[in-house]
Design a protein around this nucleic acid. Structure first.
Lengths: 230, 230
DNA sequence: AACTGCGGTCATATTTTTGTAACCAGATGG
DNA sequence: CCATCTGGTTACAAAAATATGACCGCAGTT
C-alpha cells in the first residue's frame, strides 16, 4: 500500500523518532524528521510534508508554540498537525484543540493506533486539494487526470503552470508574494529569481486565455492573487 | 528594491567580507561587518541586525561558539544565523543545525546562492503581520487578500493608499499630523514633502467614493482623522 | 546529432504609482 | 471686505513594478 504521503516527525528524542519512523514506513508513509521546532520549520518550508506529528514537550520552542505559529502563517495554516504528548493531560488537550491541532495522541501508544489516527486525519484533511477536481466559474482543474478545462474544453499548460494553478485554486482570494509562491509551488531549497514567477504567471494567463486568465490578478507591490471576483 | 534588512557579516578575512558586502548591497541589503566574535557581539547589541552571516572558522572564539552564545541569550535567541564554512563537512552541518543555525552555506558559493538563501531564511523567520479583516460601516479592508470592499464590491487603489487606509482603520477616531502619517505609513527615514500626504488623501477619498470617503476627515490646522462619525 | 518540451533568466516594453509644483477655493482673522 | 492661511485639485515627469518576448541550456527523444 502506497499512499505516498509524507509525514514529518518532530521530537527531541531520537529513539522515539526512530520508533515512529519504522511504524510509519511499514504502513507505507514517507517520513521526515526534525529534532526541534526550528529545524521543523525549515523542513516544512523545504519539503512540504502532508502532515506533521509534533511532540508537545520539547526544549526551546514547544510543540504548541510551533503549532500556533504554523496556524498563523497563511502558507502553512492548512497543514494537518497531530500532537504527541507524554501525559494524558486534559488541559493540554483542550489547549491543543483550541490551537487548531487536528488530533491528539498520548504516549504510550501502539503503532497500530498511531497509523490509524494519521490515516483518519489525512482522510478528512486531504480530499480538499489532492483527490477531487475543483471547479470555479467554468474553470476546472482535475488533479486525477492532471488536466485543466476552461468551459469543458481542455487547456494545455506546462507542469509548473499546472501546479501554480492548483495552488491558486486551492487558495483563492488571498494575495501571495512571489517568495511565498516559490515556497509553496516550487518548494523550498530551490533558489530561483523572484521574477521567474512573473514569467510563469504570464504563461498561465496565456494558457487560460483572456477571460479565465483574469482570475489571476496582479496585486501591485505584493504579488498575485486568484479571485473570480474581478 | 529596498528590503531595508540589515545583515551582519562576521569573517576574519577582510576580502571575503568585502566580496559579500558588495553582493548583498547590490541585492538591496544594508550590511554591517565584524572581524571576530567579540566585535560581532558589540555590533549585534548596538545595531540589532536582522540576520547574521557567520564564518565557521575564526581565530579566537569560533563561529559555532558565538552562535551558541547568541542562542542562549534571550535577547538574541531569535536572531537568524547563517553559517559560512570552507568545507562541505557534514558533521559541521549537523552540529550547526543542532545549535540552532538557520542555514548553512559552504564556500565557495555564488553571490546568487548567498542572496537567495538569505532571502529564504528571512522569509521564514520574519513573522507574518496583521491578518484579520477589519470592517467598519460597510467598508472592509482585508490584509489577506489585500483588498478593500465598499459594500461588498472591490475598490481599486494604489499600494500607498492601501497602507494609508489600513493605518487609519486600525487607528480610528484620532487626528494625525502629516508628519505622523509619513512616519507611520511611509516609514521613517524617508524624506517627502508633507503636502504629498494631501495628495494621497485625495486619491484615497476618490477611490472610496463620496460616502466612504467622508470617513477620511480633515482636521484643520492639524492633519487628518478617520472616523465613521460624520 | 538534431529535435523538442520545459524552466529559468535577461533585456526591453508597458503600465502604475508616486512625489511635487502650480494653481484654486474656502476658511480665518482683522 | 481684504489679506492670508490651509487644504483641495490637477497635471506631469520621474521612478518603480510588472508584462512580455526572446534566448539559452538541459533532459529526454527520435
Amino acid at each position: 500500500m502506497h499512499t505516498g504521503k509524507r509525514v514529518l516527525i518532530v521530537d527531541d528524542e531520537a529513539p522515539i523518532r526512530e520508533m515512529i519512523m519504522v511504524a510509519l514506513e511499514m504502513a507505507g508513509y514517507e517520513t521526515l524528521e526534525a529534532a526541534n521546532a526550528k529545524d521543523a520549520h525549515s523542513v516544512i518550508v523545504d519539503e512540504q510534508p502532508d502532515l506533521i506529528l509534533l511532540d508537545w514537550m520539547m526544549p526551546g520552542t514547544s510543540g504548541i508554540e510551533l503549532a500556533k505559529r504554523l496556524r498563523s502563517d497563511p502558507t502553512t495554516k492548512d497543514l494537518p498537525i497531530v500532537m504527541l504528548t507524554a501525559k494524558a493531560d486534559e488541559d493540554n488537550k483542550i489547549q491543543g484543540l483550541e490551537n487548531g491541532v487536528d488530533d491528539y495522541i498520548t504516549k504510550p501508544f501502539s503503532p497500530r493506533e498511531l497509523v490509524a489516527r494519521l490515516k483518519a486525519v489525512l482522510r478528512r484533511t486531504t480530499p480538499a486539494g489532492q483527490e477531487d477536481a475543483i471547479t470555479v466559474s467554468g474553470l476546472t482543474l482535475d488533479p486525477g487526470s492532471h488536466r485543466v478545462y476552461a468551459d469543458q474544453s481542455p487547456v494545455e499548460m506546462g507542469p509548473t503552470e499546472f501546479r501554480l494553478l492548483q495552488f491558486f485554486m486551492t487558495h483563492q482570494e488571498r494575495a501571495y508574494t512571489r517568495g511565498q509562491l516559490l515556497d509553496m509551488v516550487w518548494g523550498g531549497n530551490v533558489y530561483v529569481e523572484e521574477r521567474t514567477v512573473d514569467v510563469h504567471i504570464r504563461r498561465l494567463r496565456k494558457a487560460l486565455g483572456d477571460s479565465f486568465g483574469a482570475f489571476i490578478q496582479t496585486v501591485r507591490g505584493t504579488g498575485y492573487r486568484f479571485s473570480t471576483n474581478i
